[in-house]
Design a binder for these strands. Structure first.
Length: 299
DNA sequence: AGCACA
């Protein structure tokens, strides 16, 4: 389908996929790490890993539960700058949580994340939440030293790290921040205030997992274009590990589909990686994928 | 928001 990369340094920036990315920032060329915002507070490290580890050139990732607000941020590092850009352009705007419809905002990070020490764990977690609220009690932090600034305290490749802005808006401002204590003191200089704040209703005490539907090895796929065919959808799904059967129904206008997987792990991974995918036949936001309410009948 | 097949 659409492999969105190969934008040689000299080429005119007219790659159609490139418009999805924040404007090319000359200050960040060569950075291997992506900054990912727009994550719900109940995001799991495994979800980040599932989403990015299939991308070519993936190296490692780090998930931080910021103590402020209710959204986590992630830092995902690739082996090459081009791989990072490619993952950014193809995943930017992904609807991570169908319940809220919030989309991922991905930018190049301010600097490349430090490699995990020891190399044992695939990903690291930093949890600054006062009360590790809902859901995530299983993997508190088995990262290394409970790092507070675990990704950019080193200076091997030279970069600036000073706690700075904490914006996570698509307006192109930098937004990687690690310290929980630095509220940005309104010195954004060149960025006019944006009106759109992250609209996720703050769930103070509410625990509303990423969906009201319990995990299921069958996925429900909606928001298909009216002209979407089973083959078109199947072609995308068949790249996902564990995919079995696809069934499409058109009942009230728009078609919907059910995709069955071998297990919940593979259906979850597929949902994470295909969420928001725009098909040739789609005209709106791309695929809306949820767990089906009941598993597809066997055979 | 829209969830079927047995």
């Amino acid at each position: 389908m659409s492999l969105s990369h190969r934008l040689p340094p000299g080429a005119p920036a007219v790659d159609p996929y490139y418009v999805y990315a924040p404007r090319p920032d000359p200050h960040r060329h060569g950075v291997l790490t992506l900054f990912v915002a727009g994550l719900p507070d109940d995001v799991k490290p495994r979800e980040i890993h599932n989403l990015f580890s299939h991308r070519p050139g993936f190296d490692h990732c780090l998930l931080e539960y910021t103590g402020r607000g209710n959204q986590a941020v992630a830092f995902v590092t690739f082996f090459t700058h081009e791989a990072a850009l490619s993952a950014m352009t193809s995943l930017n705007g992904t609807i991570f949580d169908p319940d809220t419809g919030d989309r991922l905002h991905i930018e190049l990070a301010k600097s490349t994340s430090r490699r995990p020490r020891g190399g044992g764990d695939v990903y690291r977690i930093i949890d600054k939440r006062a009360n590790k609220t809902e859901g995530n009690a299983d993997h508190e932090n088995f990262g290394d030293e409970g790092g507070e600034e675990a990704w950019e305290e080193d200076e091997d490749d030279g970069h600036d790290d000073n706690g700075d802005g904490g914006s996570d808006e698509p307006s192109g401002t930098e937004n990687e921040n690690s310290s929980d204590k630095n509220e940005l003191p309104a010195d954004k200089s060149d960025q006019p205030a944006h009106k759109q704040q992250n609209g996720s209703p703050s769930n103070d005490g509410r625990d509303k997992s990423s969906s009201d539907i319990p995990p299921c090895s069958t996925l429900f796929i909606a928001n298909l274009g009216r002209t979407c065919t089973e083959d078109e959808l199947k072609e995308v799904l068949s790249k996902e590990p564990g995919f079995h059967v696809l069934k499409m129904r058109r009942r009230s206008g728009m078609p919907v589909a059910f995709a069955d997987f071998t297990d919940i792990e593979s259906s979850t991974a597929a949902m994470n990686s295909l969420q928001g995918t725009v098909l040739a036949s789609s005209d709106n936001d791309g695929l809306h994928i949820e767990y089906a309410r009941s598993k597809m009948r066997k055979s």
